[in-house]
Amino acid sequence: MSRLGRTRQARTAEAVARVLTGTVALSVVAVALFIFVYIVYNGIGALDWTFISEVPRDRGREGGILPVIVGTLYVTLTTAALTLPIGVLAGVYLAEYAPRNFTTRAIRLAITNMAGVPSIVYGLFGLAAFVLLAGFGRSIIAAALTLTCMTLPVVITATEEALRQIPQDLRQASLALGATRLRTIYKVVLPAAAPGIITGSILGLARAAGETAPILFTGAVFQMRRLPDGLSSQFMSLPYHIYAQVTSVPGWNRTLVWGTAFVLVAGVSIVSVIAAWWRSVQRRKVKW
């Protein structure tokens, strides 16, 4: 083949590659957009004051989802309160203190494996460990502890990654000024890594807020006439409410169930967008 022919062939291949990769990338966006639009289209009709301010009636076919929203917030915030301190401390240990030895490798391996465990297995574990063995019963605290186990690997990894992004120069500068390692971490390294830690953690918590399997056996209930009144209370939850309506209520109200899905997706999206925005503001301020 002539040299010219070969060049032309290469150019064609280049164009095909560009179109192919571009199409695939765009189709991902299309799927995401479709899901989002479909939920909004089907769910927006349910949204009114009654929907978010009243308790479900007629097994959820009528009325609102107030206790469902409150239950999800309650469990998710409890999970955050448990996960963040433990996850950040573990991440700090791995990034700042852990020696390169067998124990550290074992810890990392355990974390990777924890991230790979299916959520229904966490549900079973939560039932065995927190509901029965620890004696919490089916409750917000038992569900939050179960979700904590599931979310911890995400928060630990996010923390470790964020800390590793911080240049060694900064630690040196702080140590050279007579700061201890601990002070260096909480005054310089952690604040600088905070945007990364928080964004990563929020993604993990958003995932936890939408999970059904871990709360199925550990505290979520089908119907409650009042709001949860403490950590030992049972609770209703957005993902479980959707699941329960569709599987156990004959003639379930399509609009209300899609409305519930809409509230869940909107809540998670709003928090994620705020986190992303905040991170980009911090990024603009701080560049290495």
């Binding site: 900064l170 040196q172 500068a173 702080s174 140590l175 007579g178």
Partner: peptide
Amino acid sequence: VELRMRVGQVFQRPNPFPM
């Protein structure tokens, strides 16, 4: 820690804290 309060250091690359 006490020594480093008496003996300061300036590094090769400027490394101010992000504050």
